[in-house]
């Protein structure tokens, strides 16, 4: 083979072997799910969790199950677990709120944790492939077909909101929801603020299951439920000093 032919052959093989590594389907645009006319839209989606109402273990379980079962979140025990929404204690949720004598109502409570859909998200900043990106409406989503599994975003997220598929998730999903994509081994995943629900004109599953304990709406709209709730009660966010501008608020 002549040198040139050889090079051509090499290039051709390289091109073919590249194909599977290209993201399947369209590259992520500003929207992740095709939208119907009923789609809910916002300038900045945000969530307000009323921790007074959401302190009920039954309700917490219901909310977590609503999310995890619809989104095919695998149920894995141990330190390699995967979770999109879960509960933790006051000092683990708000480690910056150092107080030697916090009110018992706070230390008794369990708090729901999930991705904050930060306005200034470090996970997006560090991702080398733009597999994690922020939509115009403030939702931080992922393209599982582009993610290379480098886990830089997990190091970058100050809220521990991200999980990595250390093993094949399929074996750990008891009753898969065929309407939602199953992730593959070796990629990172997290809460999506139910962008697929919003595209259909419906509220996130956890909000629906919360019996009014979780509000969801547009922060840019002063008349929205979330803005009204924040105006009328004391709320805090997780680690606000880092400048990430979390989109999840906790009413105490």
């Amino acid at each position: 083979m002549k040198r040139r032919q050889f090079l051509q052959a090499v290039m051709a093989t390289a091109a073919v072997s590249l194909v599977p590594s290209l993201p399947l389907g369209a590259a992520p645009g500003r929207e992740t799910f095709s939208e119907g006319s009923k789609a809910l839209k916002a300038g900045r989606w945000a969530m307000v969790i009323d921790t007074r109402k959401m302190n009920d273990p039954r309700l917490q379980k219901k909310v977590i199950e609503a999310c995890h079962s619809r989104h095919n979140v695998p149920d894995i025990e141990g330190p390699q677990e995967i979770k999109w929404i879960w509960t933790d204690s006051y000092d683990h949720t708000f480690p910056e709120q150092l107080n030697n004598y916090p009110a018992q109502t706070l230390t008794d409570r369990r708090f729901l944790l999930l991705c904050n859909h930060c306005e200034n998200p470090p996970c997006v900043r560090v991702c080398p492939t733009q597999a994690t990106f922020k939509r115009d409406d403030g939702i931080v989503v992922m393209d599982y077909h582009r993610c290379i599994g480098c886990r830089f975003c997990m190091a970058g997220c100050p809220y521990g909101a991200r999980s990595f598929n250390f093993s094949d998730p399929q074996e750990y999903v008891k009753t898969p929801n065929p309407k939602f994509p199953m992730r593959m081994r070796g990629v990172v995943e997290k809460c999506t603020f139910c962008s697929e629900q919003l595209a259909k004109g419906e509220l996130p599953y956890c909000v629906q299951a919360s019996e009014g304990g979780i509000l969801f709406g547009d922060l840019n709209d002063p008349a929205s439920d979330v803005r009204k709730a924040l105006l009328s009660a004391i709320s805090i966010r997780r680690k606000p000093s880092l400048g990430t501008q979390p989109g999840v608020y906790y009413i105490l």
Binding site: S21, V126, P128, T129, I148, G149, C150, R185, V187, V188
Partner: peptide, 24 residues
């Protein structure tokens, strides 16, 4: 770096989607 990746066969995505705001 390669052995650390969850999806090593996609490593070229770093070149296909150049991302100047990522230090990596």
């Amino acid at each position: 770096i390669t052995v650390d990746l969850g999806q090593p066969q996609r490593v070229l995505n770093v070149i296909l989607h150049p991302t100047p705001h990522s230090v990596m």
